[in-house]
Each structure stands twice: as structure tokens, then as C-alpha cells.
Design a protein around this nucleic acid. Structure first.
Ligand code: MN
Ligand code: MN
Ligand code: ZN
Ligand code: ZN
Lengths: 126, 126
DNA sequence: TAATTTAATGCAATTATGTCGCATTAGTGT
DNA sequence: ACACTAATGCGACATAATTGCATTAAATTA
């Protein structure tokens, strides 16, 4: 079950590294240059999520987006943060805004998925 | 563009009324008794959302769930509240917990979709 | 270095959710 | 009763993501 180093893995990670936004499989495939199978990209992304390298955001359009957890650390983002999906430029960004909730401890919270949707700060300028 | 009263509309609403949880199209179809086409159920649900009768939650499994806004009022739930998806009993509930965030007003927030996932208070008993 | 093991990949098929076009049905107002 | 058109059923379509299986190749061992 040990991970192997492959060019594909590195290519996917490099694309996400050079982006300040969360990306979908489709966006990654477009930007990656070399031809990598769709299913393979998904498998790489899923493995990175399992390993805690990436986190997965499911937006209100039903699509999955992936972002480096590193990026979040670097920019001092809290563990659970809001995400913003811009309907104009179709990007998803990790916000530095922490998610707070207080819930009876009868609940076991395993995942937190918070997405705000609208027009991002860049697009609302015009 | 005026809405017409149909048996289908009432049947869908009645199912949601008799549930304290948010429901997916599939769950509604199962519980509704009479045969109603899948596409029709979706159209009914979408219209109710447009009219502010229901609200739509997109969970981290990528599926849409629908809940009466009425129920939320009745139980004094804030406009934007968290939702909880239980992975054991596969239900989604509207939590009375409000969603708070402070965001530069350069952003235009149009939708808020916050879902916590894990084991709900009923299922964690065992 | 050569052989072995098995994780990773490519491809096609499959699953799942939701939408759309179009012909038909049936509410609603006159 | 009639006209208008919203609502419905059906099938096709769109999209996102996963899975089975044969093949490839990374890593470990001999
Ligand atoms: Mn993030
Ligand atoms: Mn709700
Ligand atoms: Zn934007
Ligand atoms: Zn439960």
C-alpha cells in the first residue's frame, strides 16, 4: 500500500502548486499539458486527499474541487475555512475565514464543507 | 407564468411536510406513493425553490436535498443555517446553528451552502 | 543486473444525478 | 364551452465521477 513516485502524480501536484485557487479535475487536465487519463487524475486526486496533501471541496454546482492544504497553511488559513465560488470566473478559492459552529457532542462531525457562491472580489470590480 | 394547483405539487409538498428532514428527489419519489415522473419531481422542486417555499442543500456527496423553509421558521432556524448529513442513516437535517462569516464587501454573496457530515445524534447513541 | 511484486495507469463501460425537447394533458380565466 | 399555456410524461441527453480489467512500470529483493 505504499505510494510510488510517478510523473503523473508530480504533474498534478505541480499544477495545483502553481494555482492559488482550488481546481476541478477538468481544469487540471486542461492545464497539465501532457495527456493523462481522466480516471487516473481522479485516482491521483483521491489518493492525495486520503494522504492529507489535498482537501476536497464540493461546491453547490455538485462538482468536486481540490486544493493544496499546504497553500492554506502558508496563507495562515484555519483548518476549517469557507470557500468562495464565483459564478462569473468559475473559480473556487479558499477563504481565510474560519468556520465556527457549536454542536451538541452527540454529533460526530467528520467533514466540514462550507461554500459561499456569488461574485468574487475581482469580478465585482466591473 | 402563474403557478397552477396540481396533485403532483401537493403530493410533493405533503411528503416534505411530514418529514423533519431534508429529502432528495429519490427519497421523495419512494415515499410519495403515487407514480410521478422523475423529471417532474425535479421541476416541482425547482419551482418551489424559486418561490421560496423550499431551500436546496447540496451535500458533500454531490446530491441535492430539499427542505421546507417553513419548517425552519417554525423551529426558529436562522436564515442561513448549517446542515448535517449522517453517513449512517443517510439523512440530512437543518440545524438551528447559524452560519456566520465576515467577508470583504468586495464579494457579493448570493448563496450559502454549509454541510457538516458525520454521525448524527440518533445514530451515535449505539 | 535480473527477477519479482504489486501500485499505478489507460481504456472502455458503467453508475448516478440532473436537465431538456417535445408532444400531450389539464388547470385557469373568460 | 373555449382559448391559453403551465404542467406532465417520456425519452434522450449531459455531465461528473467511479469501476473492472488488462497492461505498465516503480520499487524491492535476490
Ligand atoms: Mn480550502
Ligand atoms: Mn435547511
Ligand atoms: Zn470571479
Ligand atoms: Zn444518523
Amino acid at each position: 500500500m505504499k505510494r510510488r513516485n510517478t510523473a503523473t502524480k508530480e504533474a498534478v501536484l505541480s499544477v495545483l502548486n502553481s494555482s492559488d485557487k482550488a481546481m476541478s479535475q477538468g481544469a487540471i487536465e486542461k492545464k497539465i499539458g501532457v495527456n493523462i487519463n481522466r480516471a487516473t487524475i481522479y485516482r491521483v486526486l483521491n489518493r492525495y486527499c486520503e494522504d492529507g496533501v489535498l482537501h476536497r471541496i464540493v461546491a453547490d454546482n455538485g462538482k468536486q474541487y481540490f486544493a493544496l492544504c499546504e497553500e492554506c497553511d502558508k496563507h495562515r488559513k484555519p483548518l476549517h475555512h469557507f470557500h468562495f465560488r464565483c459564478e462569473k470566473c468559475e473559480t473556487i478559492e479558499c477563504l481565510p475565514e474560519p468556520v465556527h459552529f457549536s454542536l451538541s457532542n452527540a454529533y460526530v462531525v467528520e467533514k466540514v464543507n462550507c461554500v459561499l457562491t456569488g461574485i468574487c472580489k475581482d469580478c465585482s470590480k466591473f
